[in-house]
């Protein structure tokens, strides 16, 4: 089973890109599974189900989304394998820019859009900087020169990645991206694998539900600004 982690900032076009890739994989008669991670609410699982692929939905609710991801991904991979998926795709949003779901030896994709601003690539952490493939979306909205400038900013923070332009609406570029997916890591289980980068940590009183503001309510792993 070929397994890929796909992540990216909210609204960058992850679901649309994955839907276009699914269409291209289905033309090749592949059995596909998708795991959609989100926080509070998502209907994207229905959009996937409409395409006739197997779907699992995970909502992290009150927990840190990426910690939730890493505690569940192993059983998701086992599920995909047991159900005979030839391709398994996990989709998760990077919400704090310091998170990253990417796993060593597992093909990692980051989706980012041309409209997000010229400094955004710098602001995104390991989710972008350690990805193997960076997909840039919404290229039809801007000019060629602006696409080139944005891609060079991405290239600067992740010079080793393959950068691809994909249009999630028309599907332009999805066919080409799919041929890269055919070379994705082939696995049966995540046993023994490690994350590419540690997740942001905390464990302070606020992690445990504290709501009151003030020095006396702060315990655990606290860091102060230098003002």
């Amino acid at each position: 089973m070929r397994f890929l982690t796909i992540s990216g900032p909210p609204s960058s076009g992850k679901t649309s890109v994955i839907l276009r890739v699914i269409e291209a994989l289905q033309l090749r008669e592949k059995k596909i599974g998708v795991i959609k991670f989100d926080c509070l609410l998502t209907d994207d699982d229905k959009r996937y189900a409409e395409k006739g692929v197997l779907v699992q939905k995970g909502l992290s609710g009150a927990l840190c989304p990426d910690h939730y991801f890493v505690s569940n991904i192993e059983s998701c991979v086992t599920w995909g394998h047991e159900n005979g998926c030839e391709y398994l795709i996990s989709e998760s949003a990077g919400l704090c820019n310091r998170c990253s779901p990417h796993i060593n030896e597992i093909t990692a994709v980051c989706v980012i859009d041309n409209l997000s601003g010229i400094n955004t690539p710098r602001k995104i952490g390991p989710m972008l900087k350690s990805a193997d493939i960076v997909v840039i979306t919404k290229g039809d909205i801007v000019s060629q020169a602006e696409r080139e400038v944005f891609a060079s900013r991405v290239k600067q923070v992740n010079p080793g990645a393959i950068i691809m332009h994909v249009n999630g609406i028309t599907g332009q570029g999805a066919f080409e991206l799919t041929s890269l997916f055919e070379e994705a890591s082939d696995i049966e289980t995540l046993k023994g694998k490690t994350l590419r980068f540690s997740m942001p940590s905390a464990l302070c009183s606020y992690c445990l539900g504290e709501t009151r503001i003030g020095e006396e309510h702060q315990t655990g792993n606290i860091r102060k600004m230098d003002i």
Binding site: L115, I118, I141, V142, S143, A151, K155
Partner: peptide, 21 residues
């Protein structure tokens, strides 16, 4: 040629000429 960003074979001028920067 497929993946190079330094040496792109093709420069594309699309109909859309909007700028957001």
């Amino acid at each position: 040629w497929r993946f190079s960003t330094e040496h792109k074979l093709v420069a594309q001028l699309s109909q859309n000429m909007n700028f957001v920067m």
